[in-house]
């Protein structure tokens, strides 16, 4: 049974197909409104989430399907000690497809190995979040017309930020991508991502601690939140949480066609004064996420039927 746990589970061709489907959904939403009639999506969210769960549920409703929902480990059998494997086997009896978020890394793979329906990883701890990357890719595609010849700045928590790692992995398969990695020393991109992706594929990158200095070079600026839940030590979190704040003043040095992205939720990283700037794309990203999830649900249900 085909599942999507990591963005690299999808080939470049499949990503292109998903983007084409999402573009078609945006252009012709009514022709997709009955595609999942009679199908059920189970959203199993064992960790807090607003946007991702609602995005999956909205996606399924807009395809004409139904949703079964579990939110919070405390309200499900997980609270009684049920394993992820047993949960996946059980939910497979009720639903046609599962979207799961879990605080433990690798939980989605365990679910996929045991479910008899497709599983979409909606975030497994600090590990992978492939549908966020799908949202990011559609946003870049729509704003920049493609993925080649871009200078992509990634700013904030590059150590624990799963969206950053996934985006680097996804973009590493395109041509002439250059990365600018902006973070404090303590939150630098892990060496394994540098060695096994950037260096392995010969992708040029520079590291910086100064956002303002590198901002004029960027075509894409991907801001991230410093995530409290990834720290074992509260003091470290408090010291690092506001290390980068994007303000209208700083943006004066940026390109006129810069695309500002953020996986959301934001805390203080982007001033609300930027929200009306035409370069702010983070709420478009949210909407694009729904379209890409629709495209992915359609693809996996089609493959499961075949």
């Amino acid at each position: 049974m085909r599942s999507v746990i990591d963005i690299l589970d999808l080939s470049v061709e499949e990503l292109e197909d998903l983007i084409a489907t999402a573009q078609d959904i945006i252009a012709n939403p009514e022709s997709y409104s009955e595609r999942c009639r009679g199908k059920k999506l189970a959203t199993l969210f064992f960790e807090p989430s607003t946007r991702t769960r609602l995005s999956f549920e909205a996606a399924m409703y807009e395809l004409g399907g139904n949703v079964l929902s579990v939110t919070g480990a405390g309200t499900s059998s997980a609270a009684k000690g049920e394993s992820v494997a047993d949960t996946a086997k059980t939910v497979s009896c009720y639903a046609d497809i599962i979207a799961m978020r879990h605080p433990k890394e690798g939980a989605a793979l365990v679910a996929a190995n045991n479910a008899s329906v497709p599983v979409i990883n909606a975030g497994d701890g600090g590990h992978c979040h492939p549908t966020q990357t799908l949202a990011d890719l559609l946003t870049i595609y729509r704003e920049k017309g493609g993925f080649d010849n871009l200078t992509v700045g990634l700013c904030g928590d590059l150590k624990f930020g799963r969206t950053v790692h996934s985006l680097i992995n996804a973009l590493s398969r395109y041509r002439n991508i250059r990365f600018v990695l902006i973070s404090p020393e303590e939150l630098k991109l892990p060496s394994y991502v540098k060695n096994e992706t950037l260096k392995k594929f010969g992708l040029p990158y520079v590291q910086s601690t100064d956002l303002e200095e590198v901002l004029p070079q960027l075509d894409i600026l991907y801001m991230t939140r410093v995530q409290r839940e990834r720290f074992f030590n509260e003091e470290d979190y408090l010291r690092l949480k506001d290390c980068y704040v994007l303000t209208p003043d700083k943006l004066r040095k940026a390109k006129r066609d810069l695309c500002i992205m953020h996986p959301l939720p934001r805390v203080n990283e982007i001033s609300v004064a930027i929200d009306d700037d035409p370069r702010a794309c983070y709420f478009k990203q949210v909407l694009n996420g729904k379209y890409m999830r629709m495209a992915l649900i359609l693809k996996l249900l089609k493959e499961a039927k075949a």
Binding site: V84, A85, K104, E105, G106
Partner: peptide, 13 residues
Amino acid sequence: KNPRCITSCEQEL
């Protein structure tokens, strides 16, 4: 050895 890994809490995996 990763305390965040699913194998850290599901003993039979």
